[in-house]
């Protein structure tokens, strides 16, 4: 297979990693923290109302986790296509 088609496949897989992570990014912040905040506030997490917790705590923890997962998956993908810098 040529370099070019390999690179295209790599890019497609890259997008497949990014899109679901972006969906989660949207749901935990805009979804849980703003759009559905009133509904979630009926549930409690200790002293926190759940919607309020997502807006001021939970979304941030999720963001950290998202980047962690992204880094791991991309490292795997780079290796699969031998595109990591160490192989050059």
């Amino acid at each position: 297979m040529s370099d070019k088609t390999q690179h295209n496949k790599y890019w497609q897989e890259n997008l497949k990693i990014i899109v679901p992570l972006m969906v989660v990014w949207f749901v935990v912040s805009f979804g849980c923290g703003i759009i559905f905040v009133d509904e979630l506030n009926n549930i409690r997490l200790g002293g926190y109302k759940l919607g309020f917790w997502f807006a001021q705590q939970g979304s941030i923890y999720c963001f950290v986790l998202l980047i962690y997962i992204y880094t791991k998956q991309m490292a795997k993908l780079d290796k699969k296509y031998s595109l990591d810098d160490d192989n050059q």
């Binding site: 990014w25 923290g33 807006a55 979304s59 941030i60 998202l66 992204y70």
Partner: peptide, 17 residues
């Protein structure tokens, strides 16, 4: 005030991805 908390951290997901 949550807009600042989410806004100023969530941008890093965009930046990284």
């Amino acid at each position: 005030g949550s807009v600042f908390l989410m806004g100023w951290t969530g941008g890093y997901v965009l930046l990284a991805l």
